[in-house]
Design a protein around this nucleic acid. Sequence first.
RNA 1: GUGGGUGUAGCUCAGUUGGUGGAGCGUCUGACUGUGGCUCAGAAUGUCGCGGGUUCGAGUCCCGUCUCCCACCCCA
Length: 424
Amino acid sequence: MPKIAPPPGVSDIFPDEATAWLQLESAARKVFGLYGFGELRTPIFEFTEVFQRGLGGETEVVQKEMYTFEDRGGRSLTLRPEGTAGVMRALSATDAANGVEHRVFYMGPMFRGERPAAGRKRQFHQVGVENVGRAASPGLDAEAIAMLCHFLEEIGITGFNLLINTRGVASDRPAAEQALAEHFRPHLAEMCDDCRARIDRNVWRILDCKQACCRPFIESAPDPAQFFSAESRDYFRKVCDLLTEQGIPFTVDPRLVRGLDYYVHTVFELTHSGLGAQNAIAGGGRYELQLPGLRNPIPGVGFAAGMERLLIVRDALGVTPPPAPVPKVYLASLGDAALAFNTSFAAKLRHAGISAAIDYDAKSMKSQMRAADRMKAEYVIVVGDSELEAQSAKLKHMADGREIEVKLSLDGVLAALAADAETK
RNA sequence: GUGGGUGUAGCUCAGUUGGUGGAGCGUCUGACUGUGGCUCAGAAUGUCGCGGGUUCGAGUCCCGUCUCCCACCCCA
């Protein structure tokens, strides 16, 4: 039990666990690279207004989940609660604002002051993609979704559900909002407190409510998309057609609204059972992000996946992460002269790209062999006075116990390792 | 923010009606002086989450607090 624990909802990732993270990260780089996306590393914190303006002041995230503090000059800063706003802030200084396409991805920690639960941390990690600058296009939307599915396939996640919906554009909304409000208002007395507040602040969020008392009214609610313009509905149909043509299964869910206000047109969410109540592993959509200091919002489409959740799902599916790296050669030392020799010999091996382990306490033979076994060293070389004398030692293969006589030099060991690898 | 569960050795967990804290695994040492895994023998290790209270005496009972887990909520 640690004397001092980390703050609630954050945790350490130890080396044996980190291998799984590295695997996810390199899979992301590989897959996104195939689509022409490059990595953009933005700061962990931004001026608070980047998120306030970007995500919408009415969103849950902005209202009560942000870690906000003042710097020494009294300016308000916020630890990023999601990745898109920071990416857009960075790209706002480029020609993305003039309609030039930027394809970027990011990965890293995000911060939200929520109550921790299964698959939910206060510092969590997202890997995300943004295609920014180009005007809205069903092709780009479908490509983002296809890329997300490709990524999941690459990391061994199967059996997920893809839900998609359209949120229309700003001019589509008033008619739909009015229809929704008219539908819900007569039943408000029977609905939950949150929804009573939401009807005036943001009717859409009612569709997202999971309260049992609200559900019947939500299910009988009209599909907002039916009030959208023909252009918007056509846009969404094209997205669906493109997915179908690529053989990507999906479900249209008219209730899917998502929590951030910046979405327009296509929104999607990827869920997986076996995660507990937090069943969303990734989500995204098309957006128009309004940033401070910019006259017009910048268009984009993207998604973010929760890395912790991906790992939980992967684990549940029985995908085993690669083992932590083990030393190729353990150098056992008998006596001070041997230890001195091994110290510099280990350095030579490491510079030659061979991982080497050594115990500077140079305890008993038995304890060194045990240490080599425990760290799963592939080979052991025992060096004592007689080996130094002869400039020759035995290279022992730990798995099967066979020993090979080798010259006690870098070339000698490298040659023996190469030869032994071939015989296997 | 609300509710439920939980907290004992590095890990997984026992701990009987309150009476000087245990097991397994792991670790360390050793079993014909320089060869691991198996076996055997020994050893080390805990402010029993933290703070109060009741009591002659609290890991055990009471109160508070925090963590973690689970759910609500929200989302990734």
